[in-house]
């Protein structure tokens, strides 16, 4: 009886897991599959081809939008990491008036609906008379990604032993050297995961970007939305597949690195 029970539990858990993974990965597999499809219409698979990968390389509008996304993501991530890390250190270390309020305000960009954030940024830029373009995009992306950096770095700092800094000072390091040589290296994992989050959020952001960009700068998600109206062509799938592959490699590499470090 018990055995039978065990067996049915086993079967159920297998089936359950199968559906979870199916839901997660089937769409991704479809994209990769159709990037090799001969047919331009994504309804039936008619045969294998690599021509969309070639076409993608000739689709300068698509590639330019992707490059632009990379630039916006890189710049906004850099700013968010620098400002966010320093803010996290300051908020962890010092007691000052209004610290609790600032702490709470940090959550606002995370919890308010993106559409509200987009509209408010747009009206702010309009009020300040800032022409919409890459600059406004970078400002907007920094706004919503910085809190994530603050939180990941703060989480790392909460396990940080203050006496390490005191020990470094005791050994003759001034405050700058303590920050660069002791504090930053130890909280680096937090900074890296914050940066990764910020970069990902920036690369695939659509809603905020939609409101805060001008005609001069188009990001990858915006371009794809443009294509959707006229029907997505498989070269978009091709680029998406390449991005996915790149992400996959980065994730695997970081996992391997983390595993090696933990084994050390």
């Amino acid at each position: 009886m018990e055995r039978q029970n065990n067996l049915s539990v086993k079967i159920f858990s297998r089936v359950f897991s199968f559906f979870v993974f199916l839901f997660l990965y089937a769409p991704i597999v479809v994209v990769i599959l159709f990037s090799f499809n001969v047919s331009k219409r994504n309804i039936v698979f008619e045969g294998f081809t690599l021509k969309w990968y070639g076409e993608m390389l000739n689709n300068s509008a698509l590639l330019n939008s992707f490059y632009n996304s990379l630039i916006v993501a890189a710049v906004s991530t850099t700013i968010a990491v620098i400002v966010g890390t320093l803010a996290a250190i300051a908020m962890h270390r010092y007691k000052f008036k209004g610290k609790g309020i600032i702490d709470a305000l940090m959550y606002v960009p995370i919890v308010i609906p993106e559409i509200v954030l987009g509209i408010s940024l747009l009206s702010s830029f309009a009020l300040a008379n800032v022409p919409l373009g890459n600059i406004t995009l970078i400002i907007a992306h920094t706004t919503f990604s910085m809190p994530f950096v603050v939180f990941t770095v703060k989480a790392r700092l909460s396990g940080f032993d203050r006496s390490l800094e005191e020990a470094a000072m005791d050994l003759g390091a001034n405050r700058i050297k303590v920050l660069l040589g002791i504090t930053i290296p130890i909280i680096t994992p937090g900074i890296i995961s914050g940066a990764a989050l910020a970069f990902t959020l920036s690369i695939d952001d659509f809603v905020v970007s939609f409101f805060t960009t001008g005609a001069s700068s188009v990001t990858f998600p915006l371009k794809i939305m443009e294509f959707v109206r006229s029907g997505i062509r498989p070269d978009v799938y091709a680029l998406s597949s390449i991005i996915m592959l790149a992400t996959f490699i980065v994730v695997i590499a970081s996992q391997v690195a983390a595993y090696r470090k933990s084994k050390e």
Binding site: D161, S163, L164, E166, A168, I182, P185, I186
Partner: peptide, 9 residues
């Protein structure tokens, strides 16, 4: 230091 405070990195 009491907890040694060795630099872990």
């Amino acid at each position: 230091f009491q907890n040694y405070a060795l630099f872990p990195h």
